[in-house]
Computed example of a mutant assay.
Amino acid sequence: MEDGQGQPPQALFDAMNVYIGEEAQKGHFLDGGGLFGLEDAVNFVVRKGEVTRVDGPYAEAREAVGGWALLQYDTLEEAIANQQDFADLHAKYWPECSMVATLRQIPDDMPESAEAAAGA
């Protein structure tokens, strides 16, 4: 998340390590991690049947994924509460940060052809 905000403070890393450890113990945290900045990113843009490669750095990267996590909860309400906790950690330990923490679901009913492609 290197978009003019600087590096996250060590206090956030420490708090996230505790948070992730607790979620893993409960069986919720399955996998995740941080990502490098956009300076060496490579995008492939598909537009009207054509593929174009675009290498970083990007001048106007206002929204960039800084990390990801795969978590599992029994209910959507639990997942939403957990996402709130995640955002609260950032607000508390990195108040200068401007970010969006997005919660998305993985469908249980993925078509067989997509499952085969994902496993390949």
Rank of each mutant, 00 (worst) to 15 (best):
E2T: 15
D3V: 11
D3Y: 09
G4P: 03
Q5W: 05
Q5Y: 08
Q5R: 08
G6S: 07
Q7A: 15
P9C: 13
A11E: 14
L12S: 06
F13N: 14
F13M: 13
D14Q: 13
M16E: 14
M16W: 11
N17I: 13
V18D: 15
V18E: 15
I20V: 14
G21D: 10
G21P: 02
E22C: 00
E23R: 15
E23C: 12
E23Q: 15
A24M: 10
Q25I: 04
F29M: 10
L30M: 12
G34E: 10
L35S: 04
G37E: 03
G37A: 02
L38V: 09
L38N: 11
E39W: 04
E39K: 15
E39V: 08
D40G: 08
V42S: 08
F44T: 14
V46W: 08
R47T: 12
K48H: 11
G49Q: 14
E50Y: 09
R53P: 00
P57C: 09
A61F: 00
A64G: 07
A64P: 00
A64C: 07
G66R: 02
G67R: 07
G67P: 01
L70H: 05
L71G: 00
L71N: 06
L71I: 04
Q72G: 08
Y73G: 01
D74L: 06
E77C: 00
E77R: 12
E78N: 05
E78A: 05
E78L: 02
A79E: 01
A79P: 01
I80W: 13
A81C: 03
N82P: 01
N82V: 06
Q83Y: 02
Q84P: 00
D85N: 13
A87N: 12
D88W: 02
L89A: 03
L89V: 03
A91I: 07
K92T: 09
K92F: 00
Y93L: 01
S98W: 01
S98Q: 11
M99V: 05
M99R: 10
V100A: 11
A101M: 06
T102F: 04
R104K: 11
P107V: 12
D108N: 11
D108E: 07
D108A: 09
D109M: 02
D109Q: 05
D109G: 04
M110C: 07
M110E: 12
M110F: 06
P111V: 09
E112W: 07
S113N: 13
E115N: 07
A117Y: 05
A118R: 13
A118V: 06
